[in-house]
Design a protein around this nucleic acid. Structure first.
Lengths: 246, 246
DNA sequence: CGCTAACTTGAACGCCATCAATGCTTGTGG
DNA sequence: CCACAAGCATTGATGGCGTTCAAGTTAGCG
């Protein structure tokens, strides 16, 4: 499954099309670009590799290129006076560095080893201007980003750390499902401090939240990157506690 | 100033164009639609009025129409098990109810008395299809929504209530500046519980945060809807404490 | 095998949630 | 015009949970 992540025919933008109705569970992420568009982009793109922890670009820096992830996970973050806040995690098929003309509006760092296409913005703009159909793809990707940001905000208003963690784990699980990967256990590629940054918690609080869920037999951890859900009902009660209906 | 809010020639989409470089303070929100486009939309729109507190539509309901605010403030929210979470406040020139095909993804309620255009979605879609230029407007509006959602998330990761409140007040002030309104004092049209919902705080905590800022002589309140900043330096220290540079 | 960085755990403190009571203010009817 | 009521907002007291700072522990890598 999910072969188009690896078959390198050029940059790939993957997303769910929000305008196609259907069961939310069924709507998988798929490739938005045509082979022709990918080939066009491939001509102006170059492959780059980042080690885990390596800075890709930083806030305020001159924006020269956008990136399209082939493999690995990237964390977009902003440095705060105390610690740092992770705005979003970016996965294969995502595009980043495209937001602002002129300079980057946040920093990005490789949360794991990352392989990506680097696409100079000037060349990208030429391609976009010549492909009217790409407008729609951009809109779809923006909608996806918007929904994700709102979901993130919904997570952040939760007050108990265990609730935030459960919602995050559920999010990761959905991501894996949408990518057609097996989900007998949840894979967390990023390290604890990145997760804490995303959840708006300290490292200590996140660690305690994991401990609490393990002690209560809701989840178990095979190691720091692999989580299994033991008690699905209790898990859903935590993660979906914010909805009225259920 | 800001005459186009009142001169009713048809629906008006107002936004800052993120692609036009320039001093952030200088970039004012402006009308995106041409007179012709507004006239076209006017033909399929009807004027509706909502009293303060009135429900406009609710989550899960069948989405039949989008709305474009003429005057007043709307709160988009989701009901949680405990209280409700306000995703965003919508102002004159904003469009809402457009997000999902099929059914609304959140509820909306008039935070003040509201006058708005009601635009049936079916007719709207026809107009959009015939005006290629509107794509760009949609993208601009989406970008604005995305930046706002990320800013909201940035607010929500702040741990002290006074910081969240200061950031919210700063946001409101920027809004007024962008609309060309005088800003000797900040106007808060919505009630306290809506603000509390937006800040992820309880009513009590929000009230205490106001009290703290007043006691510390950072702000003063003429009444529940009018705030004045007394100590600008202290205010900025609170509201901008999250940035590294300053 | 030992080093380092990432993670976990412990104890004390502070801030916000909670619940409950009081005060303000807005609108309505006498 | 005032009295009253209902909603909205403020204030008080208490407890829980996350932060903070510091000390262990584990895992990853040479």
């Amino acid at each position: 499954m999910a072969p188009d992540t690896k078959s390198i025919a050029g940059p790939a933008i993957r997303a769910v099309n929000p305008w196609v109705p259907g069961n939310p569970e069924k709507r998988a992420r798929h490739q938005l670009l045509s082979d022709d568009e990918r080939a066009q982009l491939a001509k102006i793109a170059s492959i780059v590799r980042f080690n885990k922890g390596e800075e890709i670009y930083s806030e305020g820096g001159e924006a020269g290129a956008a990136f399209n992830i082939v493999s690995g996970v990237v964390a977009a973050y902003r440095a705060l006076s105390q610690g740092e806040y992770v705005l979003s995690f970016l996965y294969p098929g995502d595009v980043f560095g495209l937001s602002e003309e002129g300079c980057y509006s946040n920093s990005t760092r490789a949360a794991t080893s990352v392989v990506a296409y680097r696409i100079p913005l000037s060349a990208l703009r030429r391609v976009l201007d010549n492909n009217a159909g790409l407008d729609v793809d951009v809109i779809i990707k923006l909608c996806e980003g918007l929904r994700e940001a709102q979901r993130h905000a919904l997570l952040l208003v939760q007050k108990r750390a265990t609730t935030r963690l459960a919602m995050f784990l559920e999010l990761q699980e959905h991501l894996q499902v949408a990518n057609g990967e097996p989900v007998s256990e949840i894979y967390l590629p990023m390290d604890r401090s990145s997760i804490a940054g995303y959840l708006g918690l300290t490292l200590a609080a996140l660690s305690r939240a994991f401990r609490t869920l393990i002690v209560k037999q809701v989840i178990s951890t095979r190691n720091r990157h692999h989580v299994r859900i033991i008690d699905r009902e209790a898990f859903n009660r935590l993660a979906d506690a914010h909805f009225v209906g259920s």
